[in-house]
């Protein structure tokens, strides 16, 4: 919020449906876009294109705009990120985007620089990471602590404790807020590289997942789904 004030001092907000009456998209320097496009909704795609045409820098803000987001979990519906329709100049992932990263990115944008994201995964800044953390053998059968481990504070890597944590396949940058609070990462920062679902599939293929979790798609399409549906010929 402080940063919004800063932005108001330096920039004119020319288009913001939430706070402005303006309906048409005017020319601007920076556009921040939130949310995904559902089922290729034509009106939304047109809207995006009109923004792209009139804007120097388009930034996808939040995991929905960057990867498709939570709506990807919807069966039979396609949630597409903004960059499947228009070219973008950067994105700030996170559901919600971490305040630190948001501030940094806003400052960089105001200075005319590119947004910088870490290329690493969350493990690199996780306080629960241990030297031999890859050597876990216990079956992973829980998606939240508390069901099987009524402990006060998480002391070891969740994966070692049999609790699914998406940290290894999630981009660093959220300061591990959830993990610090004893809640495993659910992957809202998205993959550090490549596409969302295949990234998770690679990970799951290597985990000793319980049968129950193995066929649970709630994590595989958590914040993204590949657009692979085939156009069937008439």
């Amino acid at each position: 919020m402080e940063i919004l004030r800063e932005i108001l001092n330096k920039f004119n907000i020319v288009h913001a449906p939430f706070i402005l009456d303006q309906v048409n998209v005017p020319e601007s320097d920076i556009a921040l876009i939130e949310g995904c496009v559902l089922d290729g909704n034509q009106a939304q795609v047109e809207y995006l294109k009109s923004i792209r045409e009139r804007t120097k820098k388009v930034i996808a803000l939040g995991t929905c705009a960057a990867f498709g987001g939570i709506a990807s979990l919807s069966p039979g519906k396609q949630a597409d990120p903004v960059d499947r329709f228009i070219e973008i100049d950067g994105f700030v992932p996170g559901c919600p985007p971490p305040p630190g990263l948001l501030n940094d990115s806003a400052i960089r944008l105001m200075e005319g620089k590119r947004i910088v994201l870490s290329d690493r995964n969350l493990c690199s800044s996780c306080e629960l990471r241990a030297e031999n953390m890859n050597e876990f053998t216990r079956p992973i059968d829980a998606i939240t602590p508390g069901t099987t481990n009524p402990v006060a504070k998480q002391a070891t890597c969740f994966l070692k404790d049999g609790i699914l944590c998406m940290g290894p396949v999630t981009r660093e940058g959220c300061e591990a807020r959830c993990i610090k609070k004893g809640v495993p990462c659910e992957g809202c920062m998205g993959p550090p590289s490549q596409e969302y679902t295949s990234n998770v599939v690679n990970f799951f293929s290597m985990l000793p997942l319980s049968a129950e979790l193995r066929d649970y798609t709630g994590m595989v399409f958590r914040f993204g789904r590949p657009r692979i549906r085939r156009e069937t010929k008439q």
Binding site: R120, S124, E131, M133, N134
Partner: peptide
Amino acid sequence: QDKCGLCGLCARSCPYNAIVLTS
């Protein structure tokens, strides 16, 4: 090293134990 987050999945996958994860 600039990209590596030390998750150790590579070490887990290597068929030859050629990858060692240190601290």
